[in-house]
Amino acid sequence: MKRSLFLALLILVLISVTRFQVDWLAERPIAVKLGYTPAAEVQRLLAGEHRLALSEMSVIRVLFYFGSLVDKWRNQIMLPPEYFNMYKTVETAVKLDPYNMDAYYFAQSAFTWEVGRAREVNALLDYGMKYRTDDWYLPYFAGFNAAFFLQDYKQAAQYMERAAQLSGNPLFAKLASRYFYESGRTQLGIAYLQGMVEQERDPQQKRAYKLRLDALVVTRTIEDALSEWRQDHDKDPQNIAELYSAGLLAQIPEDPYGGEFFIDEEGKVRTTSKFALARPVENTQQQTLDEIPEAKE
């Protein structure tokens, strides 16, 4: 009797402590952190036969990390991303499992638009193409990067040729050159993003693509208005509002990323947001991508 009373007392204490602990844990500062990954060679040795699983887990870890950052950005909490660690983790994942499509896919979506590291991503994609020999996505991505970001059309054509061969879809071969010469860079981006939005399964990724697509569509509208303006004027307009006043735009377009559009000295349509949700925050240490070593070609 005495013993069971004592036990009941102990359990009561445990419950009350647990109760408080829940509160403490809810209030603890949340550090979203990715951290460094051990060298790929070490991981390969330790993981042994489980390296495919480990590779996938690394990518999913980066994915979660990046996803939580994007959530925070949406709530106006600006955390600087650990781009260097992200890139290193993805690179390690690919060394653990060179077939890991998630890694290539994530590299393509995370390190090109926002960070402008298309050259490194293409090196990664080149590595992947040695293994995923019948996957048309990799040359397709690489071709897009070469055309859109690097403006290396010769290289882009080669990639797209390969994508066309692998997919059996001749459209790809024409894509890079045709879109650029006929419709310009923005249209190429729109075409690419439309494809990505269509086949994306993950709602968060889909939202990100959609946002960027919307931004490009708006850019495209302004660019169209601008070229119409140029037909009648010798000089470019001072700002976007001038296009609106001239009746070339139905409304002052809004940047989905929260910036403001302007026309730069070269006559290109740009925005103060630079199409990025994350902007450097003052007084915080930001990991810059310069730490990413130049990819070996």
Binding site: H50, E56, V59, L63, Y105
Partner: peptide, 17 residues
């Protein structure tokens, strides 16, 4: 289903592991 592009592949990896 956490995987973006290779759900089927990941399920094979995990079940074999």
């Amino acid at each position: 289903s956490f995987s973006m592009r290779q759900v089927q592949e990941l399920s094979i990896t995990l079940s074999l592991s």
